[in-house]
Design a protein around this nucleic acid. Structure first.
Length: 892
RNA sequence: GGGCGGUUAGCUCAGUUGGGAGAGCGUCUGCCUUACAAGCAGAAUGUCGUCAGUUCGAUCCUGGCACUGCCCACCA
C-alpha cells in the first residue's frame, strides 16, 4: 500500500532527511555489485578559499550522476571527496583579513600565521563539505582528503625526495615570475597576460668618449638601471662599428658593452636593445649566453634597491619610472614617447603586475615526465571528452618547460630539504637528518620555501587512496575511471596528474577525462566576485531544492559550450530564473505521483504488468519506457547529460503524464477493481522505473516518492538501473497507439482552431478503412471521447461528411466534427487551404526528387523507398484535403 | 602572431554516421477538465552568418570571408 504525498512539492521537507538516511545506511560506500567491477571518481578538490560556486555545482552534479548511475548498474562505485589547501590563494585571503586590521603576515611568527590560515582553511572546508552534502553528492566521506593533511603530506615528501635524488628536482638561480604583492615566485601558467595600452620610451645611450649615441626603445625604463649590455643583431651592419665601444647608461656612471645576438630583430624599432638580465626573461637568456653580470635592482616588493644611484633608491618601480623619465627628458636623453600595446603579466591570484625576478628557485625537470603522458593519450589509454582538448594538451606537453615549484609563502608543504650548516650540503629527507653524510655536521636548516599547491594535487588520484602505503583501496580503485573537470586546469592539473600517475604508479590515473563547459552569467560573462554576478548554489537550493538545481544545470549543459545561468536578483528587475526548468519538472513529477497514490486503494496489490492482460496503451507506455531506457543509458554512458535529461523530461511529461495518465483515468474510475488494479500496476511499474532512471540526476525527489510507492522496500540508490530489453518493445502497440494519438490530435486541432468551447461535446466521425483505427475507435471509445471531449464516435469506410462539419486528415483517415452553426465556413476554408498548402509543398519536393533521374540512380534504395512512401502519404493527405475544400465550396 | 570554439525561431540553446528543421522560455487563442494555473489543449515564428566547392541531395563535409568568444605566444 502506498503513502500519501503532501499537497505541494516542498523539497526542504525531505532533502536533508534522505541525505542523513543514505549516510546512516552506508549507501555511499563501495559495495560489490553484479558487475563485479569497480568504478572510481576522485573529486577535483575545491579550494578552501571560499564557498562553492556554480562551477562546482555543475562539476559535482555531473560526478554524482555518473557515480550514482554506475552504482545502480552494479559497479562497486567509489567517489573520493576532498579539498585543496590552495597555497597562495588561501594565504592571500588571510593576509587580506589581517590587512583589514592593519596587520601584515610578518607581524606574526611563521607558526602563528600558519595556524591562522589553518583556521580559515578548516572553516571553508567545513562549509564546502556541507554544500556538497546539500547537493546530494554521494561521496564516501571515509576517504575525505585534504591536500595538506598528514597522509597527503607524506606522499608529497616521498615524491619530492625521490625526484630530488634522481636529479629531476633541482635548485637553480633563474628568472621567475615574481608577484611583488604576494612576495613569491609563480609558475609560468600562474601568470595571466592582459593586453594593455602603455608607452614605449626611446632613450639615447651615449657612446663613451664620443659624441655618438644609440637609441634603444623600452616599455620599462626603470629597468635601465640594471642594464648590463646593449644588444644588436649579429648581422646588423649598422652596429658592427660599436664592437669595441662602451656605452654609458644615462643618469648613471656605469658603462656597459655591446653584445651581438640573433635574438634581436633588426627590423624592430632601432634594432638596438637594452639588456637587463635580472629583470627580463629574454634578457636573462642573453645574459646567460654572453656571460653578462646580473644586477638585481629591486626588492621583493618591487621597490628600487641599493644597486642604483642614490636618488632612486627606495622608490616604488612606477614612481621610479616617472622620476627617471622626467630626468631623462630634462637631460636630453629622451628622444620620443609613443603609445604602445603590450601584454602585461599579472598574478593570477591578485592581479598585481608581475616582475621578472632573478632568484634561487626549485624546479622539476619535466621533459622526462612529458613523453609517457603524451603517449598515454595518443594511444587512447586516456580518452578526452570533447576530444579536441587533446590538441591543447599535446601542444603544452610538446613545448613543456621546467616547472618552478618553490613558493616564497608560509602556507603549504615546506620543501623537505635540509642544509648542513657546516658544509652546506643539501639533503632531501622527510625528517631533519641527525648527521650530515658529508661532514658529519649535526646542525641543519630547513629550506624556507613551500611547494606550489599543484605539487600536492598532481598526486591526488593515488594519494587519496593511501599511497605511498600499499593499501587495499589503492590496488582496488586505481586507476580511477572518469575525471570531471574544467578545461582551464588542463595544464595545472590534468596533464600533471597523468605524468605523476605514470611515473609513480606506473599506470594512468584515469581512463577518461570529461571537460565541462564554464558556468557564465546570463549575459555570457564569467561569474566573478568583482562583477557580483555569481550565483550561490545554496541560494538556488533554498529556493527550488537541490534536485531543481541539478536537473537544470544538466539539462542546459552541452559538451561543447559554456552554460549561461540566471537567478533572481533584487537589484536587477530584468533578472531571470534559469532554475525554473528543474523546479517545474520536479513539481510535475510530484503531482503526477501524488495523483496516482491518491487513487490507490489500501488493498491494492501490485502485479507484474508483463504477466497481466495488458491493453494497447499499457503495451505502448511499456515500450516507450523501454525505448527511453535505451536512450538514457546511451546518453549517460557517453556523457551527453543534456540528452539524458531531455529524454527523461519528454518521456515523463509528454508520454506518461499527457497521454498515459490521462488515458488511464477511464480505467481508474471504471468502478471495476480488477481493471483499476491492472492499470495501477502499469502506472506504478512505469513510475518506478522512471524514478530509477531519473535518480542519478534528481536523487532526493526520486527517493522520497520511490519509498512511498506500494511494495517498495529499501533505497532507490541501490535499485537496479533500468536497462533496454529488445523484447520489451511492442511495435504493433506503438503503431496502434500512434494512430489513435493522431486522431486525438486531429480532433483537438479542429476544436482548438475553431475555438469550440470545452463544454460543447461533439460527435467524432472517422472515415477510414484502416482496421487498426476501426479497432482502436471501438476498443477505446471512452478514452477517445474523454480526451477529445466527444459525445459519440463512429468510424468506418462508409462514413459520410455531414453538412457544415470541419475536417482534418492524416494518411490513414479523415476526421469530421459536425459544427454546423458553430463555425464560420470561411474560417474552415482558410484553415484547410493553409493545411493543403503545406502538404502540397512537401508533395512537390518529394515528387521532384523522385523524378530526378540521378537521384533514383544514385541514392541508396532505402532512401528511395522512404521518399516513395512519403509521396504516397502526401498524395493521400492532399487528396483528402482537396476533397474537403471542394465540398465546402459546393455548399456555398 | 598561432591554436580552438561559436554564428539555427523574439531569447537561451539541441540537432553523432549528409536524405521531410527541434526543445525550453516568451508570444497569441481557449480552458480553474475528478494530480499539477509551476497546469491543460491548440496556434504562430526560421534565405540554419556569408560566398564558393564536393554530392543525385548540404544546417551537417571542404575552402574562403565576416562578426564573436576563449586559450597559447619573449618581440624590446
Amino acid at each position: 500500500m502506498g503513502k500519501e504525498l503532501s499537497k505541494s512539492y516542498d523539497p526542504a521537507l525531505f532533502e536533508d532527511k534522505w541525505y542523513e538516511y543514505w549516510l546512516k545506511e552506508g549507501l555511499f560506500k563501495p559495495k560489490k555489485g553484479k558487475k563485479n567491477e569497480t568504478y572510481t571518481i576522485v573529486i577535483p578538490p575545491p579550494n578552501v578559499t571560499s564557498v562553492l560556486h556554480m562551477g562546482h555545482g555543475l562539476n559535482n552534479t555531473i560526478q554524482d550522476i555518473i557515480i550514482r548511475h554506475k552504482r545502480m548498474q552494479g559497479y562497486e562505485a567509489l567517489w573520493v571527496p576532498g579539498t585543496d589547501h590552495a597555497g597562495i590563494a588561501t594565504q592571500n585571503i588571510v593576509e587580506k583579513e589581517l590587512a583589514a586590521d592593519g596587520k601584515k603576515r610578518t607581524d606574526y611568527t611563521r607558526e602563528k600565521f600558519v595556524d591562522r590560515v589553518w583556521e580559515t582553511a578548516l572553516k571553508h572546508q567545513k562549509s564546502i563539505i556541507s554544500q556538497l552534502r546539500k547537493m546530494g553528492c554521494s561521496c564516501d566521506w571515509d576517504y575525505n582528503s585534504f591536500t595538506f593533511d598528514e597522509k597527503r603530506s607524506a606522499a608529497v615528501k616521498k615524491v619530492f625526495i625521490e625526484l630530488f635524488n634522481k636529479g629531476l628536482i633541482y635548485k637553480s638561480k633563474y628568472i621567475v615570475n615574481w608577484c611583488p604583492r604576494c612576495g613569491t615566485a609563480l609558475a609560468d601558467d600562474e601568470v595571466d597576460h592582459e593586453n594593455r595600452s602603455g608607452k614605449i620610451w626611446h632613450i639615447k645611450y651615449p657612446v663613451k668618449d664620443s659624441s655618438e649615441f644609440v637609441v634603444v626603445a623600452t616599455t620599462r625604463p626603470e629597468t635601465m638601471l640594471g642594464d648590463t649590455a646593449i644588444a644588436f643583431n649579429d648581422k646588423d651592419e649598422r652596429y658592427i662599428k660599436f664592437k669595441n665601444a662602451k656605452f654609458t647608461i644615462p643618469l648613471t656612471d656605469r658603462d656597459i658593452e655591446p653584445i651581438y645576438d640573433s635574438y634581436v630583430d633588426p627590423e624592430f624599432g632601432t634594432g638596438a636593445v637594452k639588456v637587463t638580465p635580472a629583470h627580463d626573461p629574454n634578457d636573462f637568456e642573453m645574459g646567460m649566453r654572453h656571460n653578462l653580470p646580473f644586477i638585481n635592482i629591486m626588492t621583493g616588493d618591487a621597490k628600487m634597491n641599493e644597486n642604483i644611484p642614490e636618488k632612486y633608491r627606495g622608490m616604488d618601480r612606477y614612481e621610479c619610472r616617472k622620476a627617471l623619465v622626467a630626468d631623462l627628458d630634462a637631460a636630453g636623453y629622451l628622444v620620443k614617447v609613443e603609445d604602445h600595446q603590450n601584454a602585461v603579466g599579472q598574478c593570477y591570484r591578485c592581479k598585481t603586475t608581475i616582475e621578472p625576478r632573478y632568484s634561487d628557485q626549485w624546479f622539476v625537470n619535466m621533459k622526462e615526465l612529458a613523453g609517457p603522458a603524451l603517449k598515454a593519450v595518443a594511444d587512447g589509454k586516456i580518452e578526452f571528452l570533447p576530444e579536441r582538448w587533446i590538441k591543447v594538451y599535446n601542444n603544452w606537453l610538446n613545448n613543456i618547460k621546467d616547472w618552478c615549484i618553490s613558493r616564497q609563502l608560509w602556507w603549504g608543504h615546506r620543501i623537505p630539504v635540509y642544509y648542513c650548516e657546516s658544509c652546506g650540503r643539501m639533503e632531501a629527507a622527510s625528517e631533519q637528518p641527525d648527521r650530515c653524510p658529508s661532514c658529519s655536521g649535526t646542525v641543519f636548516r630547513q629550506d624556507e620555501d613551500v611547494l606550489d599547491t599543484w605539487f600536492s594535487s598532481w598526486l591526488w588520484p593515488f594519494s587519496t587512496l593511501g599511497w605511498p602505503e600499499k593499501t587495499d583501496s589503492l590496488s582496488k580503485f586505481y586507476p580511477t575511471s572518469t575525471l570531471v573537470t574544467g578545461p582551464d586546469i588542463i595544464f595545472f592539473w590534468v596533464a600533471r596528474m597523468i605524468m605523476a600517475g605514470l611515473y609513480f604508479m606506473g599506470d594512468i590515473p584515469f581512463s577518461r577525462v570529461f571537460f565541462t563547459g564554464m558556468v557564465m552569467d546570463i549575459q555570457g560573462r564569467k561569474m566573478s566576485k568583482s562583477l557580483g554576478n555569481g550565483i550561490n548554489p545554496f541560494d538556488v537550493i533554498n529556493r527550488h531544492g537541490a534536485d531543481a538545481l541539478r536537473y537544470t544545470m544538466v539539462a542546459i549543459v552541452s559538451p561543447n559550450q559554456n552554460l549561461k545561468l540566471g537567478f533572481p536578483n533584487e537589484d536587477d528587475k530584468e533578472s531571470v530564473d534559469s532554475f525554473e526548468i528543474g523546479a517545474k519538472f520536479a513539481n510535475k513529477i510530484w503531482n503526477a505521483s501524488r495523483y496516482i497514490l491518491m487513487n490507490t486503494p489500501d488493498d491494492f496489490v501490485m502485479s507484474d504488468p508483463y504477466k497481466n492482460n495488458c491493453d494497447v496503451f499499457d503495451k505502448w507506455i511499456l515500450s516507450a519506457l523501454n525505448d527511453a531506457a535505451l536512450r538514457v543509458n546511451e546518453a549517460l554512458e557517453s556523457a551527453r547529460f543534456n540528452d539524458a535529461a531531455k529524454e527523461l523530461y519528454h518521456f515523463f511529461w509528454n508520454d506518461y503524464c499527457d497521454y498515459f495518465i490521462e488515458l488511464s483515468k477511464t480505467r481508474i474510475f471504471s468502478g471495476d477493481k480488477t481493471v483499476k488494479d491492472g492499470v495501477l500496476s502499469v502506472l506504478f511499474y512505469v513510475l518506478k522505473a522512471f524514478l530509477k532512471m531519473l535518480h542519478p540526476i534528481m536523487p532526493f525527489i526520486t527517493e522520497e516518492i520511490y519509498q512511498a510507492l506500494p511494495g517498495v522496500s529499501g533505497s532507490i540508490m541501490v535499485a537496479d538501473y533500468p536497462e533496454f530489453d529488445k523484447d520489451k518493445t511492442d511495435k504493433d502497440a506503438k503503431l496502434k497507439a500512434s494512430k489513435f494519438f493522431n486522431i486525438l490530435y486531429l480532433a483537438r486541432n479542429i476544436r482548438g482552431e475553431m475555438n469550440v468551447p470545452l463544454e460543447k461535446r461533439l460527435e467524432i466521425l472517422i472515415k477510414t478503412n484502416d482496421k487498426d483505427i476501426i479497432e482502436m475507435c471501438s476498443g477505446y471509445e471512452k478514452e477517445l471521447l474523454s480526451l477529445a471531449k466527444g459525445e459519440k464516435i463512429a468510424a468506418g469506410a462508409d462514413i459520410l461528411k455531414p453538412k457544415g462539419a470541419a475536417a482534418g486528415a492524416d494518411e490513414y483517415c479523415e476526421v469530421y466534427l459536425p459544427l454546423e452553426g458553430i463555425i464560420d465556413p470561411a474560417a474552415e476554408m482558410e484553415r484547410l487551404k493553409k493545411e493543403l498548402d503545406k502538404v502540397s509543398k512537401d508533395f512537390q519536393k518529394t515528387k521532384a526528387k523522385l523524378e530526378n533521374e540521378s537521384f533514383v540512380a544514385k541514392a541508396p534504395p532505402d532512401v528511395i523507398e522512404k521518399e516513395k512512401s512519403k509521396l504516397e502519404e502526401f498524395t493521400s493527405l492532399s487528396d483528402k484535403l482537396a476533397k474537403n475544400i471542394k465540398m465546402l465550396e459546393n455548399m456555398k
